[in-house]
Design a protein around this nucleic acid. Structure first.
Lengths: 205, 205
DNA sequence: GTCTATACTACGATAGAC
DNA sequence: GTCTATCGTAGTATAGAC
């Protein structure tokens, strides 16, 4: 029942936010009583944190393959490093485009707006490793760029994929579509790849 | 008192979201009675929509100069069009970085996650003109690129600036800082400019 | 136009039966 | 481990005084 509650809660919290979602709704949708939440998680906040950890685990799982691409960064050449960066960014973009990711992606975007303890768990459990891995890859791609500039560069590249979720409504307006389907997804992913190549292939200095 | 309520409400809604903010709090912080909200706006939702329109007006004002840059797009050369795009993106990035923009930026990001009537008003009142203007500029920069690809390209460029607000917590983690101060802002804006030049200077075909 | 008082609903937490 | 019942609090809305 704990798992069932967490699954339902991620959906509710993702849709309506922490305050918008009610424990009664979550319990009802899970087919149990509200007091189960108190019993299993100690309360609404405990359930929320459990959701954050569950999401972190899911992301880690999904990005396990990507994470392997960041191993031995110092032992590969520039071409390979660029190719791996492109693969990781594309994976991230796919996640941002995937309907299944909608609820927990919204969960994370909300947390970024007003970080709580939950963000810390998301960061440590899922994001930190990936970000540090990409930073190491970029060190190979742009060895002469100062560390801070390189990290800024990294976040801006991620921003291209993030906008697909965080700015979804605007992206749809721009493309003149109601939602991002297969065709739009392919187009956006290809464009991200093109842009990222342009950004990374630039100054080798 | 209407203005006072709207100012306070934008702050509250930005911080805690629609459900998280309470009309009692908003009224108290505005130094008036809760029933004033009903009187002036018909209820919580009416106040929320009034906030959206107020924000749209503020943005329009702030981006008025940028909008002028998009005029006569068909009559300028490629170099000029690129320069204007860079100026507009930089202005947008500054907005995303500016502390004053924090609350209404959060307001908008929230709306994008789960668009309501308020997003429609924000889009029509503030975003549409700017986006269409930039699209026209990009038509000069990349005349051979298909329309849909060009619009995708535009949103991805905006994504670089959006991440500064929507992914703020992660950007801070990546840069190893608690908040984005003057130094970080300058660094990020410069990097966005560099990246955008790389993206736009690419295929002239 | 603004405030007070109040009605009604829904929330989260908790105690106790099973 | 799960449910029912209930408490106190806080939410929006509304009627009516000033």
């Amino acid at each position: 029942m704990q798992d069932r509650l967490i699954e339902t809660a991620i959906d509710c919290f993702g849709r309506r936010g922490f305050d918008g979602a009610s424990t009664r709704d979550i319990a009802r949708a899970s087919g149990t009583a509200m007091s189960s939440i108190t019993y299993h998680f100690g309360g609404k906040e405990g359930l929320y944190l459990a959701c954050a950890e569950h999401i972190a685990a899911k992301i880690s799982e999904r990005h396990a393959a990507a994470l392997e691409l960041t191993a031995d960064a110092s032992a590969i050449d520039r071409e390979t490093a660029i190719e791996r960066c492109l693969a990781i960014i594309d994976g991230f973009a796919q996640t941002m485009l995937h309907p299944d990711s909608e609820n927990w992606a919204r969960f994370i975007v909300r947390e970024q707006q007003a970080p709580t303890e939950a963000f810390e768990r998301l960061y440590l459990g899922a994001m930190k490793n990936l970000m540090e891995g990409v930073a190491a890859l970029l060190h190979v791609v742009r060895p002469a760029l100062p560390e801070r500039e390189r990290r800024a560069l990294m976040m801006l590249i991620f921003g291209q994929a993030l906008v697909l979720r965080a700015g979804r409504a605007s992206v749809c307006k721009a493309l003149g579509t109601e939602e991002l389907g297969e065709a739009e997804a392919a187009l956006l992913r290809a464009q991200i790849r093109t842009n990222t190549i342009a950004i990374l292939s630039g100054g080798t200095t």
